[in-house]
Simulated assay, not measured.
Amino acid sequence: MDLDAYVVAHAHEWARLEELVRAGRRTGPESDELVDRYQQVATHLSVIRTAAPDGEVVAYLSSLLNRARMAMLGARVLSWRAAGRFFTHQFPAALYRLRYWWLGCMAANIVVSAVLMWWFVDHPEVEQTLLSKQEVDDLVNNDFESYYSEHAASAFATRVWINNAWVAALCMALGITGVGVVWLLFQNVLNVAVVGSIMTRHDRADLFWGLILPHGLLELTAVFVAGGVGLKLFWSWIEPGGISRGNSLAIAGRTMVTVALGLVAVLFVSGIIEAFVTPSPLPTWARIAIGILAEIAFFAYVFVLGRQAVRAGHTGDISADLLEDRVATQD
């Protein structure tokens, strides 16, 4: 193929895509043209890569397509329909496809937490190495309960939401290391086990579970989801499963972004429960019931809506039209 002739023949089409990308506002027909031109230029890039790879031209077209994708993505983000499809198709599909990873993570953490709590209760001398007698008294008699009510509910909800989102983000970000996410989850479980054992040994188990369960069920589930997805990212380059390690890691990484965005909403709900339900004057059984209902709703979301989304062909990866097109060509 004569590359110079090919460039001359299609330069006006590339220039038109440049104009559409730079346009601050686009009409409906211009938005449609942006998509059409994007697909057209993606085909040109694929042809050049196959028949006459030239570093400068490939770099230019790749950059142009990247900017075009961002322009299309910006329009999609503002679409309520796209947001709706994210929560009805993309996010639940990702959760369902990765269910064994985060369910396994959840089961392992529950077992470890139970064993640690039992061991701490059976070995009270350990408590003395972690906290002073005064700190234990403060925790049991005041600090644990007051933590949930000492700040205004709205401010507390925001603080909790940000903190939990940060923990979940760390679980996924450290997932590539494998060890990092395991260590972070262990620290989280250890903290719960230590506080739970102290409250139990001082006959305040009813207060501990009454304050932890309403929000903790959904909150910890979200953290376990983040941990499981992080570990899946680690495994994607250990065992790529018949594709290149780069592609395997890219797919797992994009799906992880989907889960991260969805967990923001899940943790927002758990933060609302922690701020407004956990410290409320409702009976303990009612507060725990709300937490259980929230957890049941999450599992129904995954195993009903998620299963349907997967059967419809959704994977949790970003839409194919937002990935770089690679069109098969013939010489």
Rank of each mutant, 00 (worst) to 15 (best):
Q330D: 14
L190P: 02
A173G: 14
I288Y: 00
L95E: 05
S154C: 10
A68S: 13
G242V: 04
I212T: 04
A71T: 14
R69S: 14
I272K: 07
R69V: 15
S197W: 04
H202I: 03
P283Q: 05
Y301K: 03
G216I: 02
V181Q: 06
M72F: 03
I251L: 09
T284S: 08
L211E: 05
A114Q: 05
K232Q: 08
S154W: 05
G74S: 08
P283G: 12
I243M: 04
P29Q: 01
W80T: 08
G316W: 02
M117Y: 07
A205P: 00
D137I: 09
A260G: 06
P279I: 01
Q134M: 14
P124T: 00
F268R: 07
W161Q: 04
G24S: 14
F91P: 00
H314S: 14
E56I: 04
H12P: 13
L184W: 01
D143W: 12
A294C: 07
V192H: 13
W161D: 01
F91E: 10
D36H: 10
L263T: 00
V58Y: 06
Q128E: 15
R81E: 15
L261N: 09
P29G: 07
A289I: 06
L139W: 02
A260H: 04
S46C: 06
A114K: 03
T177L: 12
S63E: 15
L3M: 06
T221F: 04
F87I: 09
R25L: 06
A297T: 09
R204T: 11
A83F: 14
F91G: 07
Y96V: 04
E274V: 05
V225I: 08
A309L: 07
E13R: 10
S63I: 12
A309F: 10
G316K: 07
A52W: 02
I243A: 11
V126Y: 08
A193N: 09
G253L: 03
D4C: 07
V223C: 03
F303H: 04
V304T: 14
